[in-house]
């Protein structure tokens, strides 16, 4: 299993990128070249140099330090949003697949309703009601991601439910909860992982978008999305200011997607003999 993981190029690249993000976040707790929030009017808009690898922004803050610090926000939003979406969406999908029609239908129509509601609009509403913060934005994004989790897991669970081992488990006297947890859930686990990695990437993008709109992470906490927003007005003066956070967001999203795809391919025991 481990050997196969490391033979999968997508997984390796994804793992390296995600590992780099995690490492950045970890390092930012103990060391950053400069205080990322320290305003130094004398060193505004410096170009990259040995003392400031990514240069400085319009307030003279070190961009490299901000990128390091911003990776914390990125990981945080991903975990919160995916956590909320998976914690609700996965049981919902399995229950929906196993329950009789009169339970399944309302659940799925309700999730359709939520799906029809734009995620960003929901986040804006949450920000208006509870105030703009990373957490409220991400809970909103998580809630908006529940339907996609529920649907993917439901369709996977429906397939699993048609397998004879589910019938066999019932013949063995297993109750519905045990069948769901021990027989259905492990067999849709690869779907959960893939969906989690996709949702993680979406959440990172959504946080960037919300911060860009000024509804996500409030200043001065560094966030890649807000760095992008702040760089906008200087796009022609200092384009590099948008390049670094933009590249960081794109790479992180790519990394999580590659990691998810790799895990899906490798975790499925049924594929083992085919490679």
């Amino acid at each position: 299993m481990r050997a196969r993981l490391f033979a999968h190029p997508g997984f390796v690249v994804g793992a390296v990128i995600v590992g780099a993000v995690v490492l950045m976040a970890a390092v930012s707790y103990v060391w950053t070249p400069y205080d990322p929030t320290f305003v130094d009017a004398s060193s505004r808009l410096l170009s990259p140099s040995w003392s400031h690898p990514f240069g400085t922004d319009k307030f003279g803050r070190d961009v490299f330090s901000q990128i390091l610090m911003g990776s914390r926000t990125t990981l945080f939003v991903g975990f919160v949003a995916v956590g909320v979406a998976a914690a609700v969406g996965v049981p919902l999908g399995i229950v929906s697949a196993m329950a009789p029609r009169y339970v399944d239908e309302p659940l799925m129509r309700g999730s359709d309703l939520l799906l029809a509601f734009p995620a960003l609009l929901l986040a804006i509403m949450f920000s208006a009601v509870y105030g703009a913060s990373t957490l409220t934005a991400m809970v909103a994004i998580g809630i908006a991601s529940i339907p996609s989790f529920a649907r993917v897991i439901r369709s996977g669970a429906l397939q699993v439910m048609r397998q004879e081992y589910v019938l066999a488990a019932r013949v063995a006297g297993r109750g519905p909860v045990a069948v769901g947890v021990r027989h259905v859930l492990p067999n849709v686990a690869s779907l959960v992982i893939v969906q989690a990695s996709v949702s993680f990437a979406i959440a990172v993008l959504a946080e960037a978008a919300l911060s860009y709109l000024g509804l996500g992470t409030p200043p001065p906490t560094p966030s890649w999305g807000r760095m992008l927003q702040e760089s906008q007005e200087l796009l022609f003066v200092a384009p590099r200011l948008s390049v670094f956070p933009g590249a960081a967001i794109a790479l992180a999203v790519l990394g999580f997607n590659l990691l998810g795809d790799g895990l899906r391919d490798v975790l499925d025991p049924r594929l083992e003999d085919q490679r």
Partner: peptide
């Protein structure tokens, strides 16, 4: 082929 849980 399908009567056993592939993940157990």
């Amino acid at each position: 082929m399908t009567a056993l849980n592939p993940t157990m």
